[in-house]
Design a protein around this nucleic acid. Structure first.
Length: 714
RNA sequence: GGGCUCGUAGCUCAGUUGGUCAGAGCGUUGCGCUUACAUCGCAAAGGUCAGCCGUUCGAGUCGGCUCGAGCCCACCA
């Protein structure tokens, strides 16, 4: 067959070859030019697992933009990287590698390091297979020395600016993973629980008040009972005292506006050490903290209390869920339980293991985020940063306006260690990445390091300027702020919000102009993809069977920007068929124009049909250009699909078939060449491999490669 | 408790600022191997654009309400 083109396009045979052709020729690096730069930082995939379909989505969308702007002649940078992904990776690592529990901290860190580097290599190759035209010479890792240095500098600066504090505050504790979590790492789950009504007698022994609670076991740590000052029923009681049942401790009745008059009995028991609301109320009223639940999520009683109240002994060391049953039993026996009602409510659970979160008071590092949030709100309100789809602006602002201080410390090994040393002698806190020779205050050499590491989002929140080499890097000066931040909406708060805040703080500039958010990938029954459901589509498997081009096209076809992406094998197959159509139309054209065809040597005498298709082509170029500029990828994809298949193939090629045996054979050849050539360009951002492969066979191709061809705006 | 999104052909979805759209892909049915392609071509069937009311000369496209589906945030014990 002419030009050695087989009847069916075989992506497996060309994709790898084409990719290395691009890479070897330096086409993936930004070219020098005076035009305005275009840049995207790749959301660094976690270096702990192979790529999933979600990664294929970002590769597709970002690569479309990158290829589009590269062809438009802008110095275009797509900077790839990988994330050490602290807690996430440690969880994956524990599950997969089942490390020896006796490993030293250093050895464990080293093992996880090797684990991530292995995965990073795999993921990098996979990104290439998907066609990601990123500049690999600039690849970064979130634990690269220069990145870590910037992250630590940011911490130091925040510390200096009094935006960091270490506090004994109530935090979300995961009893399973043995670490604190930020508010975002906690999800809420509805459960069928019970509301227990417990009698708290007054100190004079006459009468009692009743409180309603879902967590009776925490009563052991109550240090007050609160009512709303506006509650007429209880107003008179404020200032009196009650005796804590079972424990016998006298605790005051206080007033606080946070108490909801209409809930339960309108009386709230206050357990500052084990409930976030109570903690705040406790702070307002300077209530003591009594801890009865430990980090394993078990009851842990003061030995003295057990001695004085032997009835409580059986509770000691019980997990809270069991302790709840026992304490209810005891309360019932002793007549303190008025009643219990079924009650549906939500509890907080660890987003990874779904273990109920134990609110505990613990020493952690916090970032006062409000001042940073304020600036972020400003730039978004003023549309200095735009969101696509627009609705995310509101969502973003709403979250930003209600932000709480951020617990940035994690009690895990894998991550960037918080650069703090404690002087054991004078208790001074020293900010330093390396162990100082001695304490600057008392001169003691007895210094021990902080073992907590940063929340991984604290470092990835600095990705935009860190990866580009802030403050003096050439790339930072050229490409920052970046043009577009494209990522999934599920990490809008985790990542996008933090990037905006931390970048503004460090660089005084926005990190990017546009935020483009894509949705979740679902199967054809709208089900979320998950291993347990067995409906996952492995992107690399698809690449192997149908080619990366078909997968990419299927991911944008028929899904509007930002909404969930429905994908199915049928859809991918349809796009594989389209690829084949492109292949065969090209075969037809090549066969008819011949190897030595040169359009420049021809003066075409255009027919009505010719003028029609050229006009359609121009219209298509215009529409696609506009659609991509506005992130309406599905419109662009569908436009080129229909133009190529139903106008070029169905009409023009059929028309030319007749004319190629006519007197004027040169005009149809010219038209076929022209339309094919320009169609390849239009299609290239979506289906880079097949279009490049065909381009390489195109007679009289103007450039060495399609990837660096000039885009036609129409 | 606050907020968001969605209900358009059998299925999954498009329909930028209201006036050529009632559409695409897959599926279905009937014919076709014609200078590429059966991973194809030609033709066909199908929806009162969830329901009701309103704004308008005119509404899937704007406003209100109802019903139904999904999601996010949240310190109601």
């Amino acid at each position: 067959m002419n030009f050695e083109m087989k009847k069916h396009y075989q992506p497996q045979k060309v994709e790898k070859k084409i990719y290395s052709f691009w890479e070897k020729n330096g086409f993936l690096k930004p070219k020098k030019s005076k035009a305005k730069p275009f840049s995207i930082l790749m959301p660094p995939p976690n270096a702990n697992a192979p790529l999933h379909i979600g990664h294929a989505v970002f590769v597709t969308l970002e690569d479309i933009l990158i290829r589009f702007y590269r062809m438009r002649g802008r110095p275009t940078l797509w900077l790839p990287g990988f994330d050490h992904a602290g807690f996430e990776t440690q969880v994956v690592y524990d599950k997969k590698q089942k490390p020896d529990k006796n490993l030293s901290r250093e050895q464990l860190y080293k093992d996880i390091w090797n684990f991530t580097q292995k995965n990073r290599k795999i993921a990098r190759e996979q990104l290439k297979r998907l066609g990601a035209s990123a500049d690999w010479s600039r690849e970064k890792f979130t634990l690269d020395k220069d990145i870590v240095k910037i992250v630590l500098d940011t911490f130091k600066k925040l510390y200096k600016d009094n935006l960091i504090y270490q506090g004994n505050r109530i935090i979300n504790w995961c009893p399973y993973h043995q670490t604190s979590l930020s508010d975002l790492e906690v999800t809420h789950q509805e459960v069928e629980g019970k509301l227990y009504y417990i009698k708290y007698p007054f100190t004079n022994g006459k009468n009692y008040i009743v409180i309603a609670t879902t967590r009776p076991e925490t009563m052991l740590a109550d240090t007050a009972v609160a009512v709303n000052p506006r509650d007429k029923r209880y107003k008179k009681l404020i200032g009196r005292k009650v005796v804590l049942p079972l424990v016998g401790r006298e605790i005051p009745i206080i007033e606080d506006m946070a108490v909801d008059i209409n809930f339960g009995t309108g009386v709230l028991k206050i357990t500052p050490a084990h409930d976030p609301v109570d903690f705040e109320i406790g702070e307002r009223h300077k209530l003591p903290l009594i801890q009865v639940i430990d980090k394993k999520g078990r009851i842990s009683l003061d030995p003295q209390l057990i001695t004085s109240k032997p009835d409580l002994k059986e509770l000691d060391e019980l997990p809270v869920s069991q302790a709840r049953k026992i304490i209810v039993k005891i309360l019932k026996e002793k007549g303190f339980l008025e009643k219990e009602e079924p009650y549906r409510h939500t509890i907080s659970v660890c987003y990874k293991c779904k273990t109920p979160i134990e609110p505990l008071v613990s020493k952690q590092w916090f970032l006062k985020i409000r001042p940073l949030a304020k600036k972020a709100i400003e730039v978004v309100e003023k549309d200095k940063i735009r969101f696509y789809p627009k609705r995310y602006k509101k969502i973003f602002l709403n979250w930003m306006r209600n932000i709480h201080d951020w617990n940035i410390s994690r009690q895990i090994v894998w991550g960037i260690r918080i650069p703090i040393f404690y002087c054991q002698k004078c208790k001074k806190i020293i900010v330093s990445e390396k162990k100082p020779k001695k304490c600057p205050d008392c001169g003691s050499k007895n210094l021990i390091p902080e073992t907590d590491v940063f929340d991984t989002w604290f470092s990835s929140g600095q990705w935009p300027f860190a990866a580009l080499g802030y403050p003096n890097g050439k790339d930072f000066n050229t490409f920052y702020p970046t043009s577009v931040m494209e990522t999934g909406w599920d990490i809008l708060f985790f990542w996008v919000a933090r990037m905006i805040m931390l970048s503004l703080y460090r660089t005084k500039k926005i990190p990017f102009y546009n935020v483009l958010l894509h949705g979740l990938v679902r199967d054809k029954d709208r089900q979320k993809m998950s291993k347990s459901k067995g409906n996952v589509i492995d992107p690399l498997g698809v690449v192997k069977d149908y080619g990366a081009d078909a997968l990419r096209m299927a991911l944008v076809f028929g899904t509007s920007t930002g909404s969930d992406i429905i994908i199915s094998e049928e859809k991918i197959r349809a796009q594989r068929n389209f690829a084949n159509k492109v292949w065969n139309a090209s075969r037809f054209v090549f066969k008819n124009i011949g190897r030595d065809f040169n359009p420049k040597k021809i003066k075409p005498k255009l027919t009505k049909e010719d003028r029609w298709i050229l006009k359609e082509l121009k219209k298509t170029e215009k529409k696609i250009t506009k659609a991509i500029e506005n992130y309406r990828f599905h419109e662009a994809a569908e436009e080129i699909y229909h133009f190529f298949w139903h106008r070029f193939c169905d009409k023009t090629i059929e028309d030319c078939k007749k004319r190629l045996i006519d007197n004027d054979r040169e005009t149809p050849k010219w038209v076929l060449w022209q339309v094919l050539y320009r169609s390849l360009k239009l299609l290239h951002p979506f289906m880079p491999f097949i279009t490049e492969e065909i381009y390489q066979r195109l007679p009289a191709r103007p450039k060495k490669a399609l990837i660096v061809e000039k885009w036609e705006k129409g």
